[in-house]
């Protein structure tokens, strides 16, 4: 359950970011998650609800955008993107929703580098003032 640690980091960042604006309340938090971030989405949402209690983010909705995993072939340079399937809340590791290739789909070479996929990023917050 490192989702709780992640949720605390998230709330810490939000508190920090809006320190100068004490009247702000956060209504929605937008996150970007890659499939290899090692996160269970439903656990992160539950942890965030708890971590946000008593802060400006209490009750805020957590909206998750799925970033694709991207591999690049060392041989031909081709990049291929592998999106996470489905859009619903997941209660399994996101990594099980994407299947990465072992050979380059373009040239068949075995030398693939993973260039994206472990994103764990706060994108934006929707706030109301007052």
């Amino acid at each position: 359950m490192h989702e709780l640690s992640l949720a605390h980091s998230l709330v810490e960042i939000l508190v920090e970011q809006f320190r100068e604006r004490p009247n702000v309340r956060i209504t929605t938090v937008y996150l970007r998650l890659g499939p290899l971030a090692g996160v269970v989405e439903s656990a992160l949402k539950a942890a965030f609800a708890v971590a946000a209690l008593g802060t400006l983010a209490e009750g805020a909705c957590l909206r998750i955008e799925h970033a694709p995993a991207v591999v690049r072939c060392r041989s031909c340079g081709q990049e291929q993107s592998f999106p996470t399937n489905a859009e619903t809340d997941h209660d399994i590791l996101l990594s099980s929703l994407v299947t990465l290739p072992t050979v380059c789909p373009a040239c068949g070479a075995l030398s693939l580098d993973l260039v994206h996929g472990d994103e764990l990023e706060l994108v934006a917050a929707e706030v109301v003032d007052g």
Binding site: L10, Q17, E126, D129
Partner: peptide, 17 residues
């Protein structure tokens, strides 16, 4: 009460990193 979208673009684990 106007809604406002604030762009933050920050890694969650920035502090740890």
């Amino acid at each position: 009460m106007a809604k406002e979208l604030v762009v933050l673009e920050q890694r969650l684990l920035e502090r740890n990193d």
